[in-house]
Amino acid sequence: MTGTTGTTRLALALAAAGAYSAFPSAWYHLVQEQTGSRWTAAVLFAAHGVAQVAAMTVVARPRTAARASGAATGRVVAALLLLDTAGALLLVAAPAPGGFALLLAGRVVTGLALGALTPLATAGLARHPRGTAVATAAVLGAVGAGALLAGGLAAAGWTRPAVLGVGLVLLPAAAVLVRRVEVAGVVGAVGASSPVAVSSAVRVQAATLPALLAFACTGVLGLFSSTLPGVVAALAGGAATVAGATTGLVMLSAGGARLLLGGLPARRVHALALAAAVAGAAGEAVALHAGHLAGALASAALLGAAAGVGFDAALRAAAPRGLTALARTQRGGQLGLVLPVLAYPVVVA
């Protein structure tokens, strides 16, 4: 199955996995309160990111990329969604309000699944017009949608195991949807359009710069998906709904910004993103200091939009070089999610 239908199914599968990865975020600060350690939320979030980094490192190997890509993409993605389901079972089994050990195990398993799935699905999507923007929306925007859904269900009275149990239906359904998708011509080490002979300096630059850009952009997103939602939620009395809404707004802004700006020239898009980053950073600092909830949420959305545009730019730069380059770029993005989050408890101690 190829063409528009296959692309849509691949995007939906990626979005389902991305959305589910955000489901636990609405309870991070509550688990942290139960354990009494400021490291709890950071470790739960970072464990998922480290597992993704490990999986992306494996996918980035040319031999692995060659085996996993191409006609088998749909079947491999479906298998990874089933692995994600196994991780979801661990999350559901974790007793509330704590259950740190099982939550940690579940986050590692779901991280491994998502880490391998993301570059494979992105490589397939990137073959189509505006494919990187669709992938960015599926990778980042779906995380925001998942956080909002989890927060909304929690506000409606659903228990944590019940909310996390949604993944036991969502993920297998996505696996069934995507298993017959075939993506012809997704390559491993380099893209078909890449020059055969280039200098080592050019090769290093082409491989490093997208990863560094992805690192910088997802560093912002990581803080707004783990520790900062609790800070913002404190302005509203610690409500889990506000924590989920904070993550949701930031990630939805990140996922949707490039799609909404799709018709504009790249130079203008980048200028708007820079302006949003400056305004968002200044506004967030002022709002948190003043205890202004609406201002904090609006500024977070601006920062998310800027980060999403930057992440898409990184994918666009890596996509012509193939699956290996995409996996390395997205691995850089995952490191951006992990390292600032781990540093945050030290900085604010």
Rank of each mutant, 00 (worst) to 15 (best):
residue 62 P to E: 14
residue 132 T to V: 14
residue 82 L to N: 13
residue 77 V to G: 02
residue 130 R to K: 10
residue 110 T to W: 03
residue 125 L to F: 06
residue 97 P to F: 07
residue 106 G to D: 04
residue 46 A to L: 06
residue 115 G to Q: 10
residue 119 P to Y: 07
residue 57 T to W: 13
residue 63 R to D: 15
residue 48 H to R: 03
residue 121 A to H: 05
residue 75 R to F: 01
residue 116 A to D: 05
residue 124 G to M: 05
residue 113 A to E: 07
residue 67 R to C: 05
residue 87 G to C: 07
residue 72 A to V: 15
residue 156 A to F: 03
residue 154 A to T: 12
residue 132 T to F: 10
residue 62 P to F: 04
residue 86 A to L: 15
residue 109 V to Q: 13
residue 155 A to R: 13
residue 66 A to F: 15
residue 82 L to S: 01
residue 64 T to M: 15
residue 89 L to D: 01
residue 92 V to K: 02
residue 62 P to K: 14
residue 95 P to H: 06
residue 68 A to S: 07
residue 138 A to H: 10
residue 157 G to I: 13
residue 139 V to N: 11
residue 152 G to L: 03
residue 87 G to K: 07
residue 115 G to W: 06
residue 141 G to C: 12
residue 63 R to M: 12
residue 71 A to E: 13
residue 154 A to P: 02
residue 148 L to A: 11
residue 141 G to A: 08
residue 85 T to H: 01
residue 68 A to M: 14
residue 124 G to W: 01
residue 149 L to F: 09
residue 102 L to M: 12
residue 64 T to E: 11
residue 133 A to G: 03
residue 58 V to D: 05
residue 125 L to V: 10
residue 108 V to R: 07
residue 150 A to C: 08
residue 51 A to S: 11
residue 158 W to F: 14
residue 143 V to F: 03
residue 60 A to N: 10
residue 83 L to P: 01
residue 73 T to A: 05
residue 55 A to G: 09
residue 123 A to Q: 08
residue 86 A to I: 13
residue 115 G to F: 03
residue 86 A to E: 00
residue 103 L to T: 01
residue 103 L to A: 10
residue 46 A to R: 08
residue 137 A to H: 10
residue 59 V to A: 03
residue 111 G to T: 07
residue 78 A to Y: 02
residue 97 P to H: 04
residue 69 S to Y: 03
residue 46 A to E: 11
residue 84 D to F: 15
residue 54 A to D: 10
residue 150 A to V: 12
residue 113 A to F: 05
residue 52 Q to A: 14
residue 153 L to W: 04
residue 136 T to E: 13
residue 149 L to Y: 01
residue 80 L to P: 05
residue 52 Q to M: 13
residue 98 G to K: 04
residue 75 R to Q: 14
residue 58 V to Q: 04
residue 104 L to R: 05
residue 118 T to H: 00
residue 52 Q to H: 09
residue 64 T to P: 01
residue 144 G to A: 04
residue 122 T to V: 14
residue 68 A to I: 08
residue 128 H to K: 13
residue 118 T to E: 10
residue 81 L to G: 13
residue 109 V to N: 07
residue 102 L to S: 03
residue 154 A to E: 04
residue 63 R to G: 06
residue 98 G to M: 05
residue 140 L to Y: 09
residue 133 A to Y: 00
residue 138 A to W: 10
residue 148 L to H: 00
residue 50 V to H: 00
residue 51 A to D: 09
residue 130 R to V: 04
residue 66 A to S: 15
residue 139 V to P: 02
residue 155 A to H: 12
residue 128 H to L: 05
residue 52 Q to S: 13
residue 49 G to I: 01
residue 143 V to H: 00
residue 108 V to Q: 06
residue 134 V to R: 15
residue 129 P to V: 11
residue 126 A to V: 08
residue 150 A to P: 03
residue 89 L to A: 14
residue 71 A to Q: 14
residue 120 L to Q: 00
residue 146 G to W: 10
residue 73 T to C: 02
residue 76 V to C: 02
residue 78 A to P: 08
